[in-house]
Amino acid sequence: MISSCCSGTAVDYPHGSPVLLLEAALVSMDRLAIQRVYADSGLSPLSFCEQVVAPALAVIGEKWDRGELSLSHVYMSGRQCEEFMEQVLGGRSASVPERRCVALAVLEDYHLLGKRLVGFVLKGAGISYLDYGTVGVQELVRRVQRDGVRVLLISALMLPSALKVREVRDALDRLGITCRIVVGGAPFRLDPALHHEVGADLSCDTASQVLPALARLREGES
């Protein structure tokens, strides 16, 4: 079992770096500044996603984790990145090579903000994924099997939803399906041991931690 993962913080970047400039632009909701950071970077859209957008969202996520920003900042930052990328890419995908099939779901709950935040981070990093929305345990397992999902991301706000991850884990194991489970959400933040209890491989305290989590799972497979 791998324990909780972490990601970079603002001090990892020099003053005036594009990551910090974009972070400031996102938090202050300055769309012109976002465009300026992109134009000044000289990067391709895909490289900008990987090298600037994803780290900036990670910095914002870490600041939320430390109580320096609010969830509304995290959400609006993600939304602005999504809008910016749609504008820059003109509907084209910015997919980076990801050989594993990744899916994102919420178990039997309509609190969907966490899932949307993770989606922003994945899109910001150019990682494609299957969005299963709100599903029950049996349907989720069926889809994982059907789609050949290798990494399943589950967002939970309510404790009963978090506890249902155990049922997903057991069902996947019974079917002999090799699929790593990454969880996140309030119950897992409030009880750091909960993800072990429900058989998840990793727990993320913030949406942006999904990227280092995917990287760690990739390392574990190599």
């Binding site: 939320w64 109580g67 920003l69 609010s70 969830l71 509304s72 900042h73």
Partner: peptide, 8 residues
Amino acid sequence: QKMIDPAL
């Protein structure tokens, strides 16, 4: 403040 910007 964890949920909404205190200004909002």
